[in-house]
Amino acid sequence: MNKNKQLNCISKKYFVLNTFSCIILIIIYLTMYKENIDDIASDSEMYYWQSSLLNNNISCVYNNKSDVLPSLEDHVPPEKSIYFIETSCRNGLNSREACAVESAAKAHSKWQINVLFSNAITADTMNMSSLTTLKGFHNVKLMKIDIKKIKKFSQLANKIINKSIYPAEQLSHLLRFETLRTWGGVYLDFDVIVVRSFDSLPKNWVARETANSIGSAILAFARDDVGRNFSEAILREINSTFVPNDWSYKGSDTVTRVFRRKCTPRKPVDWSARTCQDFNVFDPTLFYPVGDFQSKVYLREGHLRVGGVYTHHMWNQKTKGAIIHKDSPYARLARRFCPRIYKTFGQMFGEDGI
């Protein structure tokens, strides 16, 4: 009898010890898991990997039913043109994207701001608040970019749409360079706020986003020999290196590879018009004054003291869905450089999906 009691006592002790050990292991696991999740959340490539898996159907680009937009291919944009390209099939623009367009239009009253959609935009969509506001600018043109009319790269476009894990991003990369090759001008991502006119800049330029890479969110390629030389080389690179499930197949990597081949020194920090066949390469401080790892600075309460910049890249892959504090640098930039859009959305400006 005493022996049974001892066994029961020992069993209970082992049970308590095992339970306690399991709890400790679970706490350690959750802590490590959280750290991994935090690391993943701060990694733009993983963010887009998750985003793309959730939004990888852009077959809407083949549907022109009820489309009210004029076709870009039926027009000849002026030399001083800025392009934004929407490829995600979301219909319309959210407040942050519309803010980028207004900032470009506000800074360039004599330029044409072309907002291009790869999918059909219906009359109902045109009456959405952001597009209604943007239509009020004399220099903003909303147009359709028709995939079927891109004959030179139609096969690649179809591969991207039907086979890529990242179709919206990869199609955007293809279309931005094909648009610049065909018409020339400046391309901007929808998370770029323009704070200074590009009038004083040369016709062909890019900017480093880091010490070792060229950014693809802000690009200027003219239709001259210099611009065509680089834009055609980048398009050939895109076409020859397409891998549907490889994140490295993206704009900045592609641009950097081409510039490495065309510029005399190997180090990007040494690239300039003198060393890159008359193509200008600017310092990050002028166009990417805050790096992607510090992007949350734009959202928090406080002041951002940078001078002489042309644009602010808001790093949407890092800041999407995050709350914009009303006294943050982002909110201040929006109130100053896209006042109509900011007023339209008010306190809801920048909220996820708005």
Rank of each mutant, 00 (worst) to 15 (best):
F177W: 07
G92L: 00
D43Y: 08
I113M: 02
E97S: 05
L188F: 15
S130N: 08
C89N: 05
V195Q: 09
F198V: 11
Y166N: 05
L17I: 13
K163G: 02
A123F: 08
W183V: 02
R90H: 01
G185N: 04
R223T: 15
C89K: 05
A217L: 05
M128H: 06
C60A: 14
N55G: 07
I354V: 14
K203Q: 08
T285I: 15
Q50D: 14
S71G: 12
N57Q: 11
C263D: 02
R335Q: 14
D327R: 10
T132P: 01
I10K: 11
L333V: 11
V101C: 04
K320H: 12
M143E: 12
S103N: 09
Q155S: 12
S154I: 12
N139G: 04
L93S: 05
P339M: 04
L304T: 06
V195G: 07
V76P: 02
K262A: 06
F221W: 03
W315R: 03
Y29R: 11
K106E: 13
N212D: 15
S88P: 01
L131R: 02
L201Q: 08
K151V: 13
L7T: 07
S59R: 14
K106F: 12
N57R: 10
Y330D: 03
Y48K: 07
L93Q: 01
F177V: 14
E351C: 07
S118V: 15
A41N: 15
P244K: 03
R336C: 07
I24S: 09
I161Y: 03
D38Y: 08
T87L: 01
W183F: 15
A98N: 01
G92N: 00
G185D: 03
G291V: 05
D74M: 04
V192S: 02
